[in-house]
Design a protein around this nucleic acid. Structure first.
Lengths: 213, 213
DNA sequence: ACATTTCAGATACTAACGGTATCTGAGTAT
DNA sequence: ATACTCAGATACCGTTAGTATCTGAAATGT
């Protein structure tokens, strides 16, 4: 705004300790996301207040509203940061080994870890319930879920192709099944620690190879 | 109700408009559950205020707290009323027909209906997120989930036995898989109506018979 | 160099919520 | 008839997300 005259010049070459305003704000934003992530995962969405997040990050609530449109947008940023790690985990699990069994085993190990402490699923799903009230959450969440499903389907396609089992199952259906199963297992597991997560890898095996067990 | 002395006698035979206090309260309680059920399903747990529930049922908030210990207990009563119908639906789906394929088809139809408008799953799962903060919700929900899993496992056992496929799969694992899949599919479906619910019945078929499709 | 503008973050406030304390009056028992 | 009980109403409290306003240091113009 107000870019009236030719001021682009230079004059900004001082890259010492004095960080620019944008950099400071980016730092603040990251701090807030980091703290919010911890608190959302620990206590859930509803039970985490913006005020406490801000104070624990060393700011006031004003900082939150100056960096995010509201609680929903903050949580969406948190979920994005989580998804990034999650996707990285799955991809490395499936690229570490070239053998199908090895890949499934690596995936099973990842699932055991990811679903074993499933605060993440719980948050994801509690937040998802807000979509009924918030068009923003609805559209953004749908967008992300479709991306994730597409990624899983692609992974299934690739794995089955490399393993030579072309006609195993429709990759899109497999993706829906796996994602649903992951969400459901994580949800159950967050309530009842005695739930057996092994069925996840078993189902994946069944889908990829044709027969459960 | 304070059955201290020998009043059982008769004296209460006037079954006219004059209802006892306990009956009126029971009516109030049912009204509240009914209205709360509609509103919880329509808007979700967090977005439904006790005040609005009470007013829409023709009472004030005091009526709620005089019939339930709090919002959590009201929602638990709502969930129980939903579970009752849900279980009835599954059982009839599986007892209507004696043929395995017919049973699975009936179940698939039920699932299509139940998960097609999955506000229920969404509520279930949003409410489940509260368990982290509330020991009451945690224990009560775990209790119910275990009952449901046991019922599903029993159903699987029965169906596989009658169909003569004894060694298909561990019924308990199948129950966990099916319940998880149902929860996950319902959750996804509540956000994204384009999700294909058919994979639910497909997976059930696969689990019961051994091969997906 | 100094004056002016900008805006990240702090502060002060509001409305709505779940929950508690208290009150009231019709129903019950004596 | 009188006293008691208790389902439900009313009034209140603490906390929350969100809004409006303010402030002071960084950015900019001359």
């Amino acid at each position: 705004m107000t870019t009236g005259s030719a001021d682009e010049g230079d004059s900004v070459a001082t890259d010492n300790v004095r960080v620019t305003r944008a950099e400071r704000q980016a730092q603040t934003r990251e701090s807030l996301i980091e703290v919010a992530r911890e608190m959302f995962l620990a206590d859930g969405y509803a039970a985490t207040s913006l005020d406490k997040v801000a104070v624990r990050a060393g700011f006031s609530k004003g900082a939150v509203y100056s960096n995010f449109a509201g609680k929903e947008q903050l949580c969406m940023a948190v979920l994005d940061s989580i998804h990034e790690e999650q996707i990285h985990g799955v991809v490395t699990a499936f690229t570490q080994d070239t053998d199908l069994d090895g890949r499934i085993e690596a995936f099973a190990a990842w699932a055991r870890e990811g679903l074993g402490q499933p605060r993440w699923t719980s948050l994801e799903v509690e937040f998802g319930a807000i979509a009924r009230q918030s068009p923003y959450v609805a559209t953004e969440l749908v967008k992300r879920h479709r991306e994730i499903r597409a990624a899983i389907a692609q992974l299934v396609r690739q794995v089955t192709a490399e393993a030579g089992i072309e006609d195993a199952i429709d990759p899109d259906q497999a993706a829906t099944t796996l994602l649903s199963l992951g969400i459901g297992l994580g949800t159950l597991r967050s309530l009842d620690h005695s739930i057996d997560v092994g069925v996840f890898a078993d189902t994946m095996r069944a889908l990829l190879r044709g027969s459960p067990r």
